[in-house]
């Protein structure tokens, strides 16, 4: 396994009949990197993520994630990644503690590890008052912070975050990004999609998909210079319109 690259994608495509949802994309993501994966609705982001998380096979091309081939080694791949989105994160009718036990169990943590992780999260996210509350009764911002911590409970090599902050208030959104930075600093790669362009600017590198292809990839400064733009919003509009 290549120690530095957590994702390696070469000429990856996914076709549905004539339609090329993902059309020959290639890129790498490094260990500990915060990688922004942008694109308009329908540009192919979701299809690409479904392949990278081992849910769908590719039509052609290759990719490894956390060292495992996305077509041949899907089960191993799934054990070594974390995933959260706004739509799917925690079980609403379980409490915080029950969710941690559930996910910890799924990912093969021992009981001792689970209770240790539970305590760590309670202290770190200040959950003492809501640790036994049903997730459905917890405000969205808290829920998303908990969901993120749960998604990395097994210390995966990489975590995929699909629009994690959609609808979250501005202060909690920023606290969420503090968590992203901490996680990346601890060596877990973060692969994130967002429609907030200020959040795109927090990423180490940003890629931009347009109609199934990656039309731009680089650091914020590189993209601003290349597209003669003042901010990421302008880059996005120039590429997608």
């Amino acid at each position: 396994m290549n120690g530095e690259k957590v994702i390696e994608v070469k000429n990856l495509s996914k076709h549905f009949g004539q339609f090329k949802a993902v059309d020959d994309i290639s890129f790498d993501v490094k260990k500990g990197e915060v990688f922004g994966f942008l694109g308009a609705n329908g540009a192919g982001k979701t299809t690409a993520i479904k392949m990278l998380t081992g849910i769908w096979s590719s039509s052609s091309g290759q990719a490894t994630v956390a060292g495992f081939d996305i077509n041949r080694n899907r089960n191993k791949l799934k054990e070594n990644i974390g995933y959260m989105s706004q739509k799917f994160s925690l079980y609403e009718d379980l409490t915080f503690k029950e969710n941690v036990r559930f996910y910890g169990g799924i990912y093969g943590l021992s009981n001792k590890e689970i209770s240790q992780k539970t305590d760590e999260m309670i202290a770190h996210l200040e959950l003492d008052n809501i640790k036994n509350t049903l997730i459905s009764e917890i405000p969205l911002g808290w829920k998303q912070k908990i969901a993120f911590s749960v998604a990395v409970i097994h210390r995966p090599k990489i975590v995929f975050l699909d629009e994690p902050t959609s609808g979250v208030d501005p202060i909690t959104r920023r606290q969420f990004w503090d968590l992203i930075y901490e996680t990346a600093e601890s060596g877990i790669t973060v692969f994130v999609t967002t429609h907030y362009m200020d959040e795109a600017e927090y990423c180490d590198r940003i890629s931009m998909m347009v109609q199934g292809r990656i039309e731009a990839l680089g650091s914020l400064d590189e993209l601003l210079e290349k597209h003669d733009a003042r901010n990421m919003d302008e880059v996005f509009v120039k590429l997608a319109r």
Binding site: G39, E163, M197
Partner: peptide
């Protein structure tokens, strides 16, 4: 009610 939630920046504009 939240017509632009989950919508990309260009479609929002």
């Amino acid at each position: 009610d939240e017509p632009t939630t989950g919508v990309d920046p260009v479609s929002r504009k």
